[in-house]
Every structure is written in C-alpha cells, then in structure tokens.
C-alpha cells in the first residue's frame, strides 16, 4: 500500500540560518540534484540515511535537528 512519508524536516529553516544558502548550493554540497533537494525539503521524498547524514553535516548539526519522525504516542488523541 502506498503511504505518504511521515518524515518531516527543518532544511528550509537551517538554510536560512546558514546565510540564506540556496537549494542549488546545498544540493551541490550534498551531491544530489537540485530537484531531489527540493523534493526532500518539501517532504515528497525520504532520503537515504547517507544523504540525510550528508545534509546534517553541511549544517554542522545532529541528524535529529534536520529530520524528525513523529512519536506514535504524540499522534494518539
């Protein structure tokens, strides 16, 4: 069954906090296409663990600061 990804991210905020880094710059530094970076930022694509670590390394922050996964307990009303 096709499910939407539940992974969220803070890439946009981190880019702006890093001197308004462009998507193209970040994509270059991570080694992915600009379209892939846009898809990741918009939550349309969950990157591989390696790509996720490379993104976190560019910003110099832990992985958890870039990507978040909802806690099942928080989702239940």
């Amino acid at each position: 069954m096709v499910k939407p990804t539940r992974v969220t991210n803070s890439i946009r905020a981190l880019r702006f906090a890093s001197g308004e880094m462009t998507q193209a710059d970040l994509a270059d530094r991570v080694g992915v296409t600009r379209q892939t970076l846009i898809a990741i930022e918009q939550g349309r694509y969950s990157p591989s663990l390696e790509t996720a670590f490379r993104i976190a390394r560019v910003f110099g922050v832990p992985l958890d600061d870039v990507f978040q996964y909802p806690d099942p307990a928080e989702e239940k009303p």
Partner: peptide
C-alpha cells in the same frame, strides 16, 4: 545542464 544522477533518480 547537470548530468548528475542520485539515489532518487
């Protein structure tokens, strides 16, 4: 144009 391919491609 970039010829780069990545995991998503």
């Amino acid at each position: 144009a970039s010829r780069l391919t990545d995991d998503r491609d």
